[in-house]
Amino acid sequence: MKGFANRDLLVIAILSGIGGVMSTYIGYLGNLLNNLLGVPFGAGQFVAGLHVFWLALGAGLVGRPGAASLTGLLKGTVELLTGSTHGAAIVLVSLVQGIVLDVVLYLAGHGSFGYALGGGMAAASNVIVFQILYFSGAPWGYLLFISVLALISGVLFAGSFARGVLDLIRVVQPTRLSTRRAPRRRSLVLTSVLLVLFSAGALYYFSQVYQPPWKGPECRVEGAVDNPISFQLSRFASQETTITAELKGQVTYVAPQEYTGVPIKAVLAEARPRAGAETLRVVAADGYEVGFPLADVLLDDEMILIEEDDSLRLVAAKYAGGYWVRQVSRLVIE
């Protein structure tokens, strides 16, 4: 902080003030976009980059590491004190945006690439912060979509547009601003580091996490078994069976109909439950789970796993609807 001249602090203060004022207008634009597209939320993220625009200007005009974070903190505080509809959360959101932008600009330099990457990532960070605070249950696919919208907005408004305005300011010289630019020697290093990191991330994701849609859903059998397995239904295709079952839930009712799938007992036979095991827990991808007496399951011909909506579903004909677990991901023997 000692490195900031009075003029730098004034630039940051003034940009934070305008940013605080403009946040109302940007929120209004976001709501208009939502209304235009007929969605309750999400489309407004297309103007998220405008919130980061002021931070990018602060970083560019001051040219010192920490300028974007300071602008973010002050802008968030101004928004809080002038009655932002997000309350104290806006300080956190704005500060995180500033830190992200500072880090990227420090590593990537103040070139077009640095502003585009930093602006995009900073704008997208608001989705992550709000997800942590309020939207913990939202699916990652949806959050990714919204983040991409914010990222594009950040690249356009906080990256390209802010860079253009900075160039314009350097030409017009409305004030005797420092025209320092952060050294660019780090750009190549950062690009290489990011390339390696992204490549490693992509490699890990596609090799360990990602399941192509044509591969089909997988399930694991684990716990007290001699042969823990990870399987797809196609592995037990020869043992497929068709049963007729009726779903009687507390609320939902599905009339008797035929279901074709693999008996759970066939899967468990391959996994070989250990002597003394008593319970089968069927666990869904979202954490929902139910338990069955293992001895009953091993004799049950009408408890099968079927493929439904690109995931596995348990059909338990002899049990109530709450036991028909969707998105089955694990069978745990205990």
Partner: peptide, 23 residues
């Protein structure tokens, strides 16, 4: 809080009505 930083907050808040008017 160092007074130079505190002054930033005061400056930013003081300019808010002016920027609203200019907008």
């Amino acid at each position: 809080l160092p007074y130079r930083q505190g002054f930033m907050l005061i400056t930013a808040l003081r300019f808010v009505p002016l920027f609203q008017y200019e907008l």
